[in-house]
Design a protein around this nucleic acid. Structure first.
Lengths: 337, 337
DNA sequence: CTGAAAGCGCTAACAA
DNA sequence: TTGTTAGCGCTTTCAG
């Protein structure tokens, strides 16, 4: 059973192939009745245009690149499935492209990739959304792109955000409402843009609750389990140790829990712990982790939508913000257990 | 800067485009000196053939489909990056295709996908490697494919295995060597082919250690955290409870740890727990999980190699087995703590 | 509003 | 061993 071609559709609809092409591409200048006739023929034949042929002939490639360099598998999978969904629905394919954001030749490689694979656009996920050199190269080259969770709101038309700061403020106030006054915080990897916003949210949450910010309750992590463990161990060794620790992501929170366990502290009796992201780990650890659910899937779907609009030259929606929400589980509780 | 085409290469090398084509495709009947001349021109121009054009013109599409329906993000990412690596190296692209293995129309969809996207071949990961209907369809349609970790060795030329059974036997004997005699086992999802082999390995390990198999120490799980928790709770409620639990994967092992914690049992003091896979969770949980590291990445690279060979009609290597290895961590210890 | 003709960059079949 | 020619299935001119 051979694939049906545009010619067969044209023959069935009794029009030229060019008219079929117009219908496929939603071009103007086709009478409605003709359009319907062609659509009907397309349906009856189960016709779908050959991607390679349109790529070869046309200016567009119907190909979008997805760039990532994120150690969290669940993050990547969530982004990927969101983007896949939206792109497939619009007959675009995606080219998965793992990167090394520290690679000095990254920009050149991406430029090359775009030219060579004739990509119509690019989706950047953290920490690539934070890669200034890359971003300005894309801007200069007029390559369409969208950033998931970029570090600032300087380019809202090409960004999808979540409310990192607000929700971190909320989490901090929640911990305060449980009676905690010494609430530690573990900062994530400085190369990740959301890190700053989350940290600021924590600080605002403290002051909102009338708690004085103490430098000594802040640890520097790098988004990894081990970095969270080490940072937490430092914090917990202090004479007056924190009674709660809020970590910038779930892996670090899990590391903090390990440190607490090893120091003989019970959770949440002696120490409350909260994270950010709600990765699967958060609910598979014991006690289960209070955290913040980041709507990665929805954010990446929105990112794909924005990109496709941009590619088609359609008006791009304004600032896109999809809120994260708190998920209270068992790792947090009132002070003193 | 336009892309260089085969014509420019031909001009520079002073041969016809057909000769360039021959060199690109490693076809025979090109004199060595000519081949070198062409290669040189290709290098100097930085030429790379346009995929769309070769797809359109040729019989092959240089496109391979990756099929998965696995809830474990880290599994999927590992497979994907292995396959990507090998395929990119050979100038093949991959088409990521999440599936629903319970979908009754799956076979038709895949058949359609292969025809429509003109896929050269398919890589099946569990539980799709276990999908008999799908597998026989592919065989009938003569569609090249490879299975990662299929349920049996009936088609070794199209399979990549690991030593599930052997290593589970080893793990069981290890637990026995710590003094455990009541070693429980939580079986994974029956739709996953490796499940049987792992269970058999456990049984053999018992008998190898001179321990009688007891039906009462076996729980049925479904690969999920929650199913492991529930199965473990049943086992631990027995009058004579197991002193060790070996679960068919890490998620279930984590669930078992939760059940133990909630029943006030310490790990490994009161209960040793072991898993399988060595997903990130295994080292991010407390106490860290003794488990078996499955070489997913290597297996999928091998799978890609086999598939590409098959597509090119090159001889396909025999049975491919890449061993999993035990990773002893803190969740197992001598009986009685 | 519609169509005819000319490619896109490559491979396949055949000729030389 | 090499080259010539004709497409692959579509989009892009440009004419009607």
């Amino acid at each position: 059973m051979r694939k049906t071609t545009i010619e067969e559709v044209a023959a069935l609809a009794r029009v030229s192939i060019k008219t079929v092409s117009r219908v496929i591409n939603d071009e103007p200048n086709v009478r409605d009745t003709t359009r319907l006739k062609v659509r009907d023929a397309i349906d009856r034949l189960g016709y779908r245009p050959d991607q390679s042929a349109r790529r070869l002939a046309g200016a567009r490639s119907y190909l979008v690149g997805l760039l990532y360099d994120n150690p969290s598998a669940s993050y990547v999978i969530d982004v990927q499935s969101g983007v896949l969904d939206r792109c497939r629905a619009e007959n675009y394919e995606i080219l998965i492209n793992p990167c090394d954001y520290k690679n000095h030749a990254l920009c050149a490689e991406i430029e090359n990739l775009v030219r060579h694979a004739r990509l119509d656009g690019l989706i950047l996920t953290p920490p690539l959304s934070d890669h200034q050199e890359l971003v300005s190269m894309l801007r200069k080259q007029l390559i369409p792109f969208v950033m998931v969770a970029p570090p600032n709101q300087s380019d809202p038309a090409r960004s999808v955000f979540t409310n990192d700061r607000d929700v971190c403020r909320e989490m901090t106030r929640y911990l305060a409402s449980l009676g905690h006054e010494r609430i530690g915080y573990i900062i994530g990897h400085p190369d990740h843009g959301a890190v700053g916003a989350r940290y600021r949210g924590y600080q605002e949450g403290l002051s909102g609750a009338g708690i004085r910010f103490r430098k000594g309750l802040i640890g520097q992590g790098y988004n990894s389990y081990i970095s969270g463990e080490e940072a937490a161990r430092q914090l917990l060794k202090r004479k007056v140790r924190p009674t709660a620790i809020f970590a910038g992501n779930d892996e670090m929170a899990a590391g903090a829990m390990k440190a607490a366990h090893e120091m003989g502290l019970t959770i949440p009796g002696d120490l409350s712990v909260a994270g950010f992201d709600d990765v699967p780990l958060a609910s598979q650890i014991w006690p289960s982790l209070t955290t913040i659910r980041q709507p990665i899937r929805a954010m990446s779907e929105k990112a794909a939508d924005i990109l496709l609009n941009q590619i088609r030259g359609e008006p791009v929606n304004g600032l896109q913000m999809i809120p994260s929400v708190m998920v209270i589980r068992d790792s947090t509780g009132p002070i003193g257990g």
